[in-house]
Write a protein that binds this DNA or RNA. Sequence first.
DNA 1: GTCATATGTTAGCATTTTCTAACGTAAGGA
DNA 2: TCCTTACGTTAGAAAATGCTAACATATGAC
Lengths: 105, 105
Amino acid sequence: MDTLLKTLADEKRREILRLVWSEELGATEIAQHFPNVTRTAISQQLSLMKRVGLLNERRAGTHRFYRAQHREVLRVQQFLNGYWSDSLQRLKELAEAIEKGEVTA
Amino acid sequence: MDTLLKTLADEKRREILRLVWSEELGATEIAQHFPNVTRTAISQQLSLMKRVGLLNERRAGTHRFYRAQHREVLRVQQFLNGYWSDSLQRLKELAEAIEKGEVTA
DNA sequence: GTCATATGTTAGCATTTTCTAACGTAAGGA
DNA sequence: TCCTTACGTTAGAAAATGCTAACATATGAC
């Protein structure tokens, strides 16, 4: 779990995750979203994220398409929501608050 | 937010947070829960956690008592729950699943 | 086979993190 | 005042992280 949380504790990686949240993208395409970082760096992040289970890889010819592994993100959310004692109560309150539009989802 | 998440991405710090979640403890007392780490290391973690807002400090004579700042943890939970697009739907499902006992809170 | 495209891998460096050991400080009791 | 207790701070070493540059591999087009 530490590894997963640590991986999410980085804006760049969260941005990658959002890019491939609902559509799969190739490594080059993903890298192009980050003008200030090398393709190499992104490639390393992708393989890290794949290793911890946050990304899924599909190979097709010379391409490799990545997409988010929603289940793992949900695992982290559940973990954090449940880690501290009275969090069930707060989770329910949060869900209600979101429904009422009191906080932003 | 990165800083907060990163701080939580460490089992030792999460353990500290749990120790002072519902009662305040002194630094020495906290350190005694970690036989394998120096008091100095714990002291540094405490001041880090205080800096990022996860802990609150109350001084009394020669003692310094720490306690968890629930609000900041809630902020992280909200952030993660809300960060990805369809998470509201999943949050609601999660809350229901927890109520039905299908997953562990 | 030859070349271009898409992508991973490796080596090396800089930065950050975390820990220990030694030292500093402040409050309270004898 | 002197000593103890409870802590923090600093310096320095060790390990982890993230990035760039250079090189390797594999697929497909011609």
